[in-house]
Simulated assay, not measured.
Amino acid sequence: MDDVQKLLIMVLKRGDDHLDVELIHCSMCTNFLMSCKCIRELLVGSIWLDMSTLSVWCSYIHRLCIENNTTNVYGILEPTFLNIVGDAGKKSDQRISQSKCKKYIQHKLQNEKKECQLLPFNHVGHWQLIILCPKINTVVVICSLHWKLNPIMEKIVSSVFTVDQMANGNRKNNTVWLYPQARKQYNSNDCGYYVMKNMLDIVTAKITDSWMEVFNDPKELTAEEMYELRLRWSTYFLELLEG
């Protein structure tokens, strides 16, 4: 059996339990519990990926950066701290205020000084990847439906990025926004996998620029690519459980 099958058998036996693991990508991500239900949804495929699933993936991507000696290049933001309250102001238990989101991004930019900050962002059930590149004054939004960024988050990112650029001596405020025509999904559930794949490709290929040229392939992910993502996630999660 591979690790997808091993983990699936484990969570089927655990029912509705939650598994306690320690994530390494964000110091504020403590007391993390992963639902067996969300793990099953990842492993069987064709189901929208939960916020916690992407949190584990962020931890895995951070570990890859450690192994590749690129922690000075890439910062990984925790998606739960980007899960903003929407236009109507209806706040669920898992959503944070726009001001807290703004402070979180600002803190990461000011204190980490990375070439690229990767922000897995979910709005109304759709995952997108935002990439902040302070050194080249560029914001990249990679979306598997080729949509623009939600206006609320666009305003937050623009405000934080402008302040950071001015603090670093760039007073022209000529930020470049890029929307590459990247890999495209053809159903309503796979957006999380595309964010996972894009994050993986960025850190393994050490991409820091030329975004429009690199992410210029609109074909959908193959079944093999989707399974590889599940396998990587499963292998890493099993390692976390082993401590």
Rank of each mutant, 00 (worst) to 15 (best):
C116G: 02
C116A: 09
L119H: 01
L119N: 00
L119I: 05
F121M: 03
V124E: 07
G125H: 03
H126N: 03
W127K: 10
I131K: 00
C133A: 09
K135E: 04
I136Y: 00
V140N: 02
V141K: 02
C143F: 00
C143Q: 01
H146N: 13
L149E: 08
I152M: 10
E154H: 08
I156K: 05
V157Q: 06
V157G: 08
S158Q: 12
S159N: 12
S159F: 09
V160M: 05
F161I: 08
F161V: 04
T162C: 06
V163P: 00
D164G: 00
Q165W: 01
A167Y: 08
N168E: 11
G169W: 15
G169H: 14
T175M: 03
Y179V: 10
Y179W: 04
P180M: 02
P180C: 09
Q181L: 15
R183K: 11
K184D: 00
Q185L: 09
N187S: 12
N187E: 14
S188N: 11
N189P: 00
D190W: 05
G192L: 11
Y193H: 13
V195K: 13
K197T: 04
N198Y: 04
M199Q: 05
M199E: 07
L200F: 14
L200T: 13
D201L: 09
I202M: 14
V203W: 15
K206I: 11
T208D: 05
S210I: 06
S210Y: 13
M212A: 12
E213L: 14
D217V: 10
P218Q: 04
P218S: 08
E220I: 15
E220K: 15
